[in-house]
Design a protein around this nucleic acid. Sequence first.
DNA 1: TGTTTGTGTTACTATTTTAATTACACAATC
DNA 2: GATTGTGTAATTAAAATAGTAACACAAACA
Lengths: 142, 142
Amino acid sequence: MNTRFAVATHILAFLHTQDGFPASSELIASSVNTNPALIRRHLSQLAKAGLTTSQMGSGGGALLARPGSRISLLDVYKAVEADGKLISVHEGPNPRCPVGRQIESVLKDRVSAVEIVTMRELSKVTIADVTRDIDAANGAAA
Amino acid sequence: MNTRFAVATHILAFLHTQDGFPASSELIASSVNTNPALIRRHLSQLAKAGLTTSQMGSGGGALLARPGSRISLLDVYKAVEADGKLISVHEGPNPRCPVGRQIESVLKDRVSAVEIVTMRELSKVTIADVTRDIDAANGAAA
DNA sequence: TGTTTGTGTTACTATTTTAATTACACAATC
DNA sequence: GATTGTGTAATTAAAATAGTAACACAAACA
């Protein structure tokens, strides 16, 4: 189903609510309702992308590498989605057919124009926004 | 890899270039470089969505149900992508955690706002546009 | 009328992605 | 040096996707 983006956003929102206090992969896993090793794998990617850091050892855990207001959903998406393709194009159509010969490049151009717009929208939302939404929902529900 | 959208667009562009002359699944399959049965499965979905029709029997095949200028990539996307979700949200986070409890609905709202923009972009491009791109590329290459 | 061409659908297999789980060397803290 | 916790590799399981074969049925046409 590919929920990597959603899970990564969950992790970052969780870290944001921790407000500078390190969170262990086990704690995060209990919020996501999965397995610590899976969380660590996600964190490893997020750390590579410069969005999180970790403190080793006892009392350690993961932290946001910068304020949640400066981490956008586009940052998350790019960190977690290897090829960064929202829509993929089939390979190997028949080069002897006028349509088959061009469809790949034509479609890639058209699709990437759409993706640029999508990415721009993703860049407008931050982890701080998401956390604010969560707080609001909890406030309203309480 | 999920290339359903791309293959469906390929099929429709191909039908558009046929200019009202029915195309058999075998002919289309040779352009896409795959299997007639797979093409027929795609066509079945496109027909259900009202984008194509077929003529049975000898000399039969698939046809566009309306002009390519009135079939948008959004029509194609909706015809072929069952759930219509560009980005999916993980299910079953921990309801006893303030973040886990709200992340699902918050993320769905934020993501669907982004998707609306994406869909609007997809609706701006038609099969006629794609075919025009293909013709231009072939003209320039020749 | 019966042969041919081609659809629509089912059932099945193979491949690829994705997620889940286990295991363990290593790091830092107390 | 015991404990807590990371990072990563290896494995298994599950789900999504694509590919293939088979066949009843429909229309055309000789």
